[in-house]
């Protein structure tokens, strides 16, 4: 499946881009994270949560094809 991935805040400094679309076989969020960790080797040093279709998800959540976002610690207000 094609998954659009958005990078926010300091994650952009690791990926060098704000978004991209990747072709993955499916599986869980952790499978996608494995792909991203091998693509961006500084990513494992960063603290972030993952959202799928704009809801926070766990590593065990099944990928649905909806947009994924990597969200570093929030700093609103």
């Amino acid at each position: 499946m094609h998954i659009r991935i958005k990078y926010l805040g300091q994650i952009v400094e690791v990926t060098g881009k704000e978004e991209e679309t990747l072709e993955v076989a499916g599986g869980q969020v952790s499978d996608l994270l494995d792909v991203l960790n091998s693509k961006y080797n500084q990513l494992k040093n960063k603290d972030f949560q993952i959202a799928q279709n704009q809801e926070l998800v766990s590593l065990e959540t099944e990928l649905t094809g909806f947009e994924i976002a990597l969200l570093p610690p929030f700093a609103g207000g």
Binding site: L8, G9, Q10, A51, A69, L71, P72, P73, F74, A75, G76, G77
Partner: peptide, 23 residues
């Protein structure tokens, strides 16, 4: 708002360097 909303803040110093704010 502080806990749940995905807003990110880049703190810019007077010498143009930066760090990322965390609530």
């Amino acid at each position: 708002i502080k806990a749940d909303v995905p807003v990110f803040g880049k703190e810019i110093f007077e010498d143009e360097t930066h760090q990322w704010k965390v609530n």
